[in-house]
Design a protein around this nucleic acid. Sequence first.
DNA 1: GACTTTCTTGAGTGATCACTCAAGTATATA
DNA 2: TATATACTTGAGTGATCACTCAAGAAAGTC
Lengths: 191, 191
Amino acid sequence: MPRKPNYDRDELIERARDLFWKRGWAGTSLKDLEVVLQMKPGSFYAAFGSKDALFTLAMEKYATDGRERLKALEQEHGPIKALQCFPKMVVENDAAPAKACMLSKTLLELHAHSHPLAQDANLHLLKMEGHFAELFRQAQSAGDIDLSHDPQVLARRYQSDLLGLRVSAEREGVDAKAIAAEIADGLTRLQ
Amino acid sequence: MPRKPNYDRDELIERARDLFWKRGWAGTSLKDLEVVLQMKPGSFYAAFGSKDALFTLAMEKYATDGRERLKALEQEHGPIKALQCFPKMVVENDAAPAKACMLSKTLLELHAHSHPLAQDANLHLLKMEGHFAELFRQAQSAGDIDLSHDPQVLARRYQSDLLGLRVSAEREGVDAKAIAAEIADGLTRLQ
DNA sequence: GACTTTCTTGAGTGATCACTCAAGTATATA
DNA sequence: TATATACTTGAGTGATCACTCAAGAAAGTC
C-alpha cells in the first residue's frame, strides 16, 4: 500500500559521514546536508529525526568502516604487518574527506560542551583501541613482538601516535608519510 | 582629553583565549564572550573589531605562552630534559582550559573551510616545531642525542606525538601521563 | 480507477548568529 | 567649569540556525 522512499538510506548516511567528517558538527548546516543528500527538510526529518541523530549514524558508519579496513589488512598480511600498514594507508587515502580522524575531531569539538556525541566518539575510539590491543596480542603469539610488553599499553600508545599522525597529516607542509613510516618502523623495535 | 578604557586589554585577551581554547571557534558565541569579558557588543567591537580578530590575538597569546614555557624549561633543565618534561607538564596542567592543543583544535575545526585562522594555527605550529628542532640540535651538541639523527625529523615526530598525546589527554579513561612518560622515555633511546 | 498509506515539498517557525549605531556617560584639557 | 574626546550602553539589524507542518504527489492494494 505505502510508497517507498526514493533513496538508499545507507548511501545517504555515507554522504552525510563524508560531509560531517570534513566540516565537523557545527561546520555542517542543514542547508549543506540538504544539498548533498538532495533532500528537503521534511524528508530529512522524516528519515533521520535530527541532525544529531544522523551524525550518530554517520559516526557509527565511520567507526565500523575503520574496523573493517583494519580487519581486512590483518587477514591479508597478518597482525604485525596490519599494524605497520594501517598508518600509511590512512595517510595515503586521498579519497577520504579529511586526513584527521572523525572521532577525534568530534571529540575535540564537542567535549567542552559535554555533548553526547563527544562521548559516542570516545566509545568508538575505545573500541578501536581494543582491536589494536588484540592485534598486538596476536603479534606476540606469532613471535613478532616480545612478550614482555603489555598489549594494552602498546595499543594505547599506538592509537595516540596514530591520532597525532592524522592531525599532522591535516596540516600543510608536513610529510605525514614519513611520520607513518617512523611509526611502522617503531613496531619492529619491539622485537 | 579622552576617556580611558576601564579594562586591561591583555587580561581580556587571556580570558578570550581560555574560552576559545576550551570551546573552539564556532562553539564560542559573542554572547559567551560578552559574559566572560564583561563587555557589551559596542565596547567589544570598538576594542577588537571582530570575533576573528580577537581569536587571532588569543591564538598569538597561546602560541607565545607555549614558547615561553618551553624556553623556561630549557633554561632550568637544559635542552634534553626540557623536551622530556614538556609532554608531562602539558598533560598535568589542570589549570588549563583544555588538554588538547588550541592550535590543533583550530586547525581541525577550520581547515576544511579554508579559514585564515586555520593557516594562522599552522604557522604557529611550524614555529613551535622550529623551537623543538633547535632543542634537539642543542641536545646533540650536549651529547644527549646521537648526531646521526636529523633534528628536524626528530622535531616533526616529537610534535606529532605531542599532538596525539594531547588529543588522548582530552579523552576520558585514558592514562595520558603514562603516554607522556613513554614519549619522554623514547628520547633516551636516541642515545 | 478508488482508496489508503507513505513520501516529498517548501514556505514558515522562533531562536540565535555576528555585528551596528545612536544616545548617554565619564574623563581629560583648557 | 566648559568643552572636546573618547568609552559604554543596549536595543536593534538582517542573516542564518535547526526544525515543523500542511498540502500535494506517488505507489501499493482492492
